[in-house]
Structure formats: structure tokens, C-alpha cells
């Protein structure tokens, strides 16, 4: 088989909720396992996914999500303790279905060579320093991501 230019995947991770952290990590790690190149641009709240102090404590929002682990009325979802309960329930479901925990998926992304880019502007806005981010993260801005994405075959945003 003639060597071809590998397919390239450029992903934006915008949210810091536990449930929304899974898809970019699953698709990027799978992409590199399929001999593709993959990069994730962690921006705005998505930066929490690669924040050393936060990635193990991402939570599920119990509000404004009719498909949430606990489909309760929003007024109930707003009560204290409901975020904790929804998060615990989702973690328990993921565990029962044998889905890898988030830290393992992050590890697989780093080991597989996924380019993990922390957004410089978000870091400035939120007061996050490079040493707050996981080892192996690269720092970049819109230009760095778009330069990579300009050659991409697949672009996704979560």
C-alpha cells in the first residue's frame, strides 16, 4: 500500500462538564489508533479537562438537560447536592458499562500522540498557568489551532 498522508482530525473541547469531556477524548484516542493525526483544542471551560487540579473532579450539570442521569424538574435540579448526585450517578453508570474513567482516556490520548492544545487566551482570562495543566499539553492560540485544522479531514466541536 502506497504511503498516504494520514487523515487528520481537529477537535474543539469547549465544555468542562464530565459528560462533555468524554466524546473529544474518545474520538481523538480512537483516531490515532486508526493511524490518523488528532489534536484537541481545549478552550473556555474545556480547559478544565486538562487542568491538573480539576480533571478528576469534573461534574455533570443536573439543570436544563432533560436527558440527564436524573431527569428531574429543573427546580429540583437547582437544589443543593443535585450536581453531586447527578455526577455520582453518571460515574456509576459509566463504571457499570466498563467505560474507561476520564483519567485513563486522557492517558491514552497522551500516549497515543494526540496533540493536546491549551488555549492561551482562556488561560489568561481564567488565571491558569502552564504548570496548572497536565504534562504534555502544548499552549497555543486560535492561529495555532486553525493552522492545524486547515489541513484537517475531520473537524468536530464539543
Amino acid at each position: 500500500m502506497a504511503p498516504e498522508k494520514p487523515k487528520r482530525m481537529a477537535i474543539i473541547a469547549l465544555h468542562g462538564s464530565l459528560d462533555l469531556a468524554y466524546p473529544p477524548l474518545i474520538l481523538a484516542s480512537t483516531g490515532v489508533a486508526m493511524d490518523m493525526e488528532a489534536a484537541i483544542f481545549f478552550t473556555f471551560y474545556g480547559l478544565d479537562i486538562i487542568n491538573k487540579h480539576k480533571y478528576q473532579n469534573l461534574k455533570v450539570a443536573p439543570l436544563a438537560n432533560p436527558a440527564a442521569p436524573m431527569p428531574v424538574p429543573n427546580i429540583i435540579g437547582a437544589l443543593p447536592g443535585m450536581t453531586f448526585a447527578a455526577t455520582a450517578m453518571m460515574k456509576s453508570w459509566m463504571n457499570k458499562a466498563n467505560v474507561a474513567p476520564l483519567p485513563s482516556l486522557l492517558d491514552m490520548c497522551f500516549k497515543g500522540g494526540v496533540k493536546m492544545i491549551g488555549c492561551q487566551m482562556t488561560m489568561d482570562v481564567m488565571g491558569v498557568k502552564k504548570e496548572d495543566l497536565l504534562d504534555g499539553v502544548e499552549i497555543g492560540g486560535a492561529v495555532m489551532f486553525l493552522d492545524y485544522a486547515a489541513e484537517a479531514d475531520i473537524t468536530l466541536s464539543f
Binding site: I26, T30, A33, V99
Partner: peptide
């Protein structure tokens, strides 16, 4: 016993 994406990642 493993779920997506682990079987594919381990295969690779």
C-alpha cells in the same frame, strides 16, 4: 468486559 474505545486502542 471492556467498552469503546478500549478494545480498539488495545488492538492498536
Amino acid at each position: 468486559g471492556q467498552s469503546c474505545p478500549e478494545p480498539v486502542l488495545r488492538t492498536k
